[in-house]
């Protein structure tokens, strides 16, 4: 087991957005987190990253209770984060974005290693975040989440808002990363098909509650999940 949320409740702005979420990601596993907008996907991921503190419940990483560990220490312990909306630092170049995430000058072999997954990165390494296209920003965001070689990579809607061709290329990159043995949690707001061949296990989430746990393919047949996530 790499990471686990246990009965996590999170309040945001006076509203309870997670109600007893229990979820885990195993070694080398790519796990999908499926739910509509506002269902609690982002908060679940933020709770793992340490950006939202639970009101109650526990967060574990590598068999250690990290509920009270701040986000920056979690990053150093080996949790990589690819946030919703990419959030590339606009006034820094792509390389500088990577440097911040690495904690200093990125060694050449680490850059070469990143290029295996995102070869396009080579092209725009010295361009400012502000001037990158949506797809380039997402590639950079993935590389940035990966640069410390984390044990767990959290990806919050990495395919959102991308042209189909670019979304496919990101999916290919993620598969390649998974094949290298990295564990991942990937959220997606409904199009399960996009994650086929990438994630094996899935959780369904609705109104802050886990409504499905099982194989990715199974979620489309599950009555509870269908009713709560897609309303059919």
């Amino acid at each position: 087991m790499i990471a686990r949320l246990e009965e996590v409740y999170v309040d945001r702005g006076g509203v309870t957005v997670l109600r007893g979420v229990t979820l885990q990601v195993g070694e080398g596993e790519a796990v999908a987190l499926i739910g509509r907008n506002g269902a609690g996907k982002t908060t679940t991921i933020r709770a793992l990253m340490g950006l939202n503190r639970p009101r109650s419940g526990k967060v574990y990483f590598m068999d250690r209770d990290i509920t009270d560990v701040p986000a920056h220490e979690r990053a150093r312990m080996g949790i990589g984060y690819v946030p919703e909306g990419r959030r590339v630092l606009p006034d820094l170049t792509a390389l500088e974005n990577l440097e911040i995430a690495y904690g200093g000058k990125v060694p050449k072999d680490t850059l070469e290693w990143l290029f295996q997954f995102v070869p396009d990165l080579k092209r725009f390494l010295n361009r400012k975040g502000l001037y990158l296209s949506g797809g380039e920003q997402q590639m950079l965001a993935v590389a940035r989440g990966l640069v410390r070689r984390p044990k767990l990579l959290l990806l919050d809607e990495p395919l959102e808002g991308l042209a189909p061709k670019i979304a496919d290329s990101i999916t290919r990159t993620l598969k390649q990363i998974r094949d290298e043995g990295f564990s991942m949690l990937i959220s997606e707001s409904g199009i399960v098909k996009r994650l086929e061949g990438l994630a094996t296990k899935a959780y369904g989430i609705d109104r802050g509650e886990i409504v499905y746990e099982g194989a990715l393919e199974g979620i489309l047949e599950d009555e509870v999940a269908r009713a709560r996530i897609w309303g059919v």
């Binding site: 990253m49 340490g50 986000a71 920056h72 006034d91």
Partner: peptide, 13 residues
């Protein structure tokens, strides 16, 4: 630019 993201990237803001 973005204190939260920088925190999540391992910087003690």
């Amino acid at each position: 630019m973005d204190r939260e993201i920088v925190e999540a990237m391992g910087v003690d803001v």
